[in-house]
C-alpha cells in the first residue's frame, strides 16, 4: 500500500543494554490490523527500515510495538531510533505487511531464533497461545543479559521454550539436535543472523526435510530504480527500433509505436504485460516473475533494459 500512517511514539522501554522497545500509536486513526510475523516500515531520514511487530495481533489496542537492536551510530536506522527518537515524537510508518506468515495448517510450530531474530516469534507465540495451538521455541543468545524478551518468554511461554546461552560449538550441536526427529505436521521457522540460518538450513537438508516445511522471512525489497537511464529496444518480429527515455516505461514506449502489449496493474505484480527477451541485460523491478522466468522474460510496466535489448515482439 502506498499510503503512510502518522504515528506517535507512546513509550520507549529498555529491553536489554542494546535493544529498545518502541510503542507507536495514534489518537486519530484506527491502526490497520496485522498478522503474526508481520512487519512495519518506518520512514527515517536515512531511508526506509523494516521491523517485525512483537505485539499479539488478537490483542492489539491501537498500538504497534517493535524491538530494535542498536547496530549503528545515529547515521544508521537503529542508531537514529535509539539516540534521536523520544517519547511523543512523530514518525511516518507504512501499514503492516507480512512476508513471514504462520502456516496455520501446522499441527505443531517450531521456532528457532538467534539474537534479535526473536521478534517475529514473540508475536507468533502470543497469537498461537491465544488460539490454543501447539508450539515450541529454541532461542540462542550470547547470555541472559543480552537476551531480548527473556523475562517475557519465561513468564508466558516457559514450558515451551529452551534457551541456548552456552559456547558456540555446544550451542550449534544442541540446536542441530533440537531440529532432529521432527514429525509430519511440524512446520519449522528460522530467524536470526545469516550464519545461524545457514547452519540450520543445511542441517534440515541433511535430515531430508522438504523445504516446504521450513520457513524463513522472505523480504522482497521492491527494486526501485533511483535514476532511470534511457535504453534502446529492438523488436525482432516486427523489426522496429526505438528508445525508451528516462521518464518513460517500456510499456508506454511500446504503446506509443502501436505495439499493443496488454497490461493491468502497472506495478509489476499481475504479470499481464510480460514479454520475451531475445537478448540483452534487464533490471527486473517486478515482484511477479520467478528467477527462472526472469532469464527470458520481463514485465514491461516496471522493468528496464540496460543499453540495448532485443525483444521477441
Amino acid at each position: 500500500m502506498a499510503y503512510t500512517l502518522q504515528l506517535t511514539v507512546k513509550k520507549i522501554e529498555h529491553e536489554t543494554d542494546t535493544i529498545k522497545k518502541f510503542t507507536f500509536t495514534s489518537d486519530e486513526i484506527p491502526l490497520p490490523p496485522f498478522g503474526a510475523g508481520a512487519h512495519v516500515t518506518l520512514h527515517l531520514p536515512m531511508g526506509k527500515r523494516q521491523y517485525s511487530l512483537v505485539n499479539n495481533p488478537l490483542e492489539m489496542k491501537n498500538e504497534y510495538v517493535i524491538a530494535v537492536k542498536k547496530i549503528s551510530d545515529h547515521n544508521g536506522g537503529s542508531g537514529y531510533l535509539h539516540e534521536c527518537i523520544g517519547q511523543g515524537d512523530n514518525i511516518s510508518v507504512s501499514p503492516p505487511d507480512n512476508f513471514f506468515p504462520l502456516r496455520t495448517e501446522a499441527k505443531h510450530h517450531v521456532f528457532f531464533a538467534a539474537g534479535i531474530g526473536i521478534t517475529p516469534f514473540v508475536s507468533m507465540m502470543a497469537y498461537l497461545k491465544t488460539i490454543g495451538r501447539s508450539f515450541e521455541l529454541h532461542y540462542a543468545a550470547s547470555g541472559e543479559r543480552e537476551c531480548a524478551f527473556h523475562r517475557h518468554i519465561q513468564n508466558h511461554f516457559r514450558s515451551k521454550s529452551t534457551f541456548y546461552f552456552m559456547k558456540r560449538e555446544e550451542k550449534i550441536a544442541k540446536l542441530k539436535k533440537a531440529l532432529q526427529n521432527r514429525t509430519m505436521g511440524t512446520h519449522i521457522y528460522l530467524c536470526g543472523p545469516p550464519a545461524f540460518m545457514d547452519i540450520l538450513l543445511e542441517h534440515s537438508h541433511k535430515l531430508r526435510y522438504p523445504e516446504k516445511f521450513i520457513h524463513e522471512e522472505q523480504f522482497q525489497p521492491a527494486v526501485l530504480i533511483e535514476n532511470p537511464q534511457p535504453f534502446f529496444v529492438n523488436l525482432v518480429k516486427t523489426k522496429k527500433t526505438f528508445m525508451v527515455s528516462s521518464g518513460q516505461t517500456l510499456l508506454d514506449a511500446l504503446h506509443e509505436i502501436d505495439i499493443y502489449v496488454p497490461y493491468t496493474c502497472r506495478m509489476g505484480v499481475c504479470g499481464t504485460c510480460e514479454v520475451e527477451i531475445e537478448e540483452g541485460d534487464v533490471v527486473h523491478c517486478d515482484s511477479f516473475l520467478t528467477e527462472e522466468e526472469k532469464v527470458g522474460n520481463m514485465l514491461t510496466c516496471v522493468s528496464r533494459g540496460i543499453g540495448h535489448i532485443k525483444l521477441r515482439l
Partner: peptide, 14 residues
Amino acid sequence: DKVERFISKIRPGT
C-alpha cells in the same frame, strides 16, 4: 499457475 501466483502475492489489506 500465474493467476494463482498473482493471488498468492496479493499484499495484506489490498
